[in-house]
Computed example of a mutant assay.
Amino acid sequence: MTRRVTGKVVTPTGVVRQGCVEIADGRITAVAEYPSVRDGHWIVPGFVDMHTHGGGGHTFTTGDPESARQAAEFHLGHGTTTLLASLVSSPFALMRDATAAFRPLVESGVLAGIHFEGPYLSADRCGAQNPEFLRDPSVEELTELIEAGAGAVRMVTVAPERAGATEAIELLVANGVVAAIGHTDATWAQTRAAVAAGASVGTHLFNGMRPLHHREPGPVVALLEAPSVVCELVADGVHLHDGMLGFAASVAGPERAALITDAMAAAGMPDGDYELGGQAVTVADGVARLSRGGAIAGSTLTMDAALRHAVGAGVALPDAVRMAATTPARALGLGDRVGALRAGLRADLVVLDDDLNVVRVMRAGDWVE
């Protein structure tokens, strides 16, 4: 049985203003003109969040599968139909146990994979990462995690200046895992070497990185100029000034800039006290910071809010949609399955009103309650 969703359809090549998405057996069968449509809602692909630590009062960072399931359900309600469960720096035992606990959720499609944001990060640029757990990359640890995950481990963030980083990046890439660069004090040359080794994502560009300098461009410039690297951007007005968001988006282009939430458990929850990676976090006016020291500790963002913010900052809607869905899907190696309104892909879509608020969400051809 074929179903139709009509409205202003945002495709990878532009907007079909009088459009129709046809769906059968959980997949998109066609995107076409539908002349009888008049001023319908926006129809965009389901969002792909490649970096989120939790939401709705639930977290991925403890490795608890039920908490992970609830966090994914919260973000699904905000249009995120594909996401990675991002952990923060932690002891290896927790990483191993979380991999085993989340593997069934990946196999069942609740999660698209696991992202280890650390512990192989810079102590000087650790941000809200727990410095107690930071260490040099370990090929032995990564090998065990990759084998235990059997495809569940999708991305690992590494600081390229740490001893053993190049070997770790090469191991990850050889096993089909995305190697990301982040929380780093690396030089421009060290970052370029990591990209040459196969790193293909910049973890929340600018945040947790050596800043730009005219005599030492550092990692930001190296990542922005690398044609093989997708740069994550947290569009919440806190992590990045809107001017810097627009600058990075224009330099990388929508095909290399990806919106992420970097959300923690407090997303969708009241201000108050929370926890992230064993550290106390205080949320005030929707901004999460470490209770001691005041470093930004993730966000309370959702992908629909990130899309609205990016558009409000001057990013054209079709470009912002690519940044929220198509580009991150491709960065994760999922572009042949999700991330766009195109025939053959899974029928994941979000219906938005003219203010870009979520009206309805569809995943695999079924409307989400």
Rank of each mutant, 00 (worst) to 15 (best):
G312T: 09
H53P: 04
Q70M: 14
L142H: 00
V110D: 13
H41G: 12
T2V: 13
E73S: 15
D25F: 04
G176N: 11
V21C: 04
H239F: 05
N175E: 11
A148F: 00
A71M: 14
L111T: 04
A189F: 13
E141P: 01
D97W: 02
F133N: 05
D336H: 15
F247K: 01
A189P: 10
G246R: 15
V220Y: 01
G7R: 00
E22G: 02
E22Q: 11
A257P: 06
L105R: 00
V230W: 02
G272A: 06
V220M: 09
G164N: 03
G253F: 05
P35E: 08
A266G: 05
E33I: 01
A280L: 11
M264P: 07
A152S: 12
Q279V: 01
A68T: 06
E140M: 05
A32I: 07
D271Y: 09
V16A: 06
T52C: 15
R322T: 00
D348K: 02
G208C: 13
R17S: 11
T191N: 13
R215S: 07
T80S: 14
T11L: 04
A174D: 14
T62Q: 15
V178R: 08
T82H: 10
P219F: 09
A258M: 10
D353I: 13
E132M: 06
T166M: 14
V201G: 13
V234P: 10
T81H: 09
L224T: 11
R154P: 00
L317Q: 05
N207F: 14
A85Q: 12
A193I: 12
E147G: 02
Y120P: 06
G56V: 11
P254H: 12
A280D: 15
E107T: 00
V234I: 15
P160D: 14
C126W: 02
G40D: 03
A196W: 11
F116M: 04
T326Q: 09
G56E: 09
P270M: 04
P119H: 03
M323N: 14
L240G: 08
A98S: 14
L307K: 05
I260Y: 10
M155F: 07
V351P: 03
V158I: 15
P35Q: 06
A186D: 08
V283W: 08
R337L: 12
E161T: 10
L84Y: 02
I169L: 10
R3L: 13
R125I: 08
R103K: 14
D64H: 10
L87A: 04
A257K: 04
A72T: 13
P219H: 13
H204P: 08
G314H: 12
S86A: 15
I181C: 14
P318I: 07
A24D: 13
G339Y: 02
D185Y: 14
A249Y: 05
T2Q: 12
R210D: 06
G176A: 02
H309Y: 12
A174E: 15
